[in-house]
């Protein structure tokens, strides 16, 4: 199918880091089943580094590929760097997404933030709310990839 780039299809067919981390330090879930996408991100943190990342996704091909790509982009990186991950970076790494699928990359960005936020809260680590604009407001994402 030529709806998606080769990169998207590769990550969809062979998703990296699928699964669950049972003793995760942070878990973030974004999206809702009503809209047709849910992403759940599990992180393991050691000395501020994301030593392991896993995901589960209910959603279309680009949602699965975006989650997979996002986990690859943050695994082994410091939290500070993971929080810089944007949906644009995920989309570019996938060699682009169709316009009506950009929200999938937004979900991936939000899922990472949600997992880190959960980790901060569990460990009573102070954080700057401005860094979590997506994960905190728990908004309904729209399907144009724009935050409402």
């Amino acid at each position: 199918m030529s709806l998606y780039s080769e990169k998207v299809m590769d990550h969809f067919r062979h998703p990296r880091n699928v699964g669950v981390i049972e003793d995760a330090d942070g878990v973030g879930e974004v999206g809702n089943a009503k809209c047709g996408d849910i992403m759940k991100m599990y992180i393991k943190v050691e000395n501020g580094i994301l030593t392991d990342v896993k995901f589960e996704t209910f959603g279309c091909g680009s949602a699965i590929a975006s989650s997979s790509m996002a986990t690859e982009m943050i695994k082994g990186k410091p939290i500070s760097e993971a929080l810089q991950l944007t949906n644009k970076a995920v989309t570019e790494a996938l060699d682009g997404l169709p316009a009506h699928k950009l929200h999938c990359s937004v979900l991936a960005e939000e899922a990472v933030q949600a997992a880190v936020l959960d980790y901060y809260k569990k460990n009573n680590i102070p954080y700057d709310e401005a860094q979590f604009k997506c994960a905190l407001c728990a908004h309904e994402h729209d399907h144009d990839g724009e935050n409402v």
Binding site: M1, M9, R13, G36, D37, F58, G59, C60, G61, A63
Partner: peptide, 14 residues
């Protein structure tokens, strides 16, 4: 229940 149709179609297409 529990899955989304587009990913189902893509994998079936494969």
């Amino acid at each position: 229940e529990g899955i989304e149709g587009e990913s189902l179609l893509l994998l079936l297409d494969d």
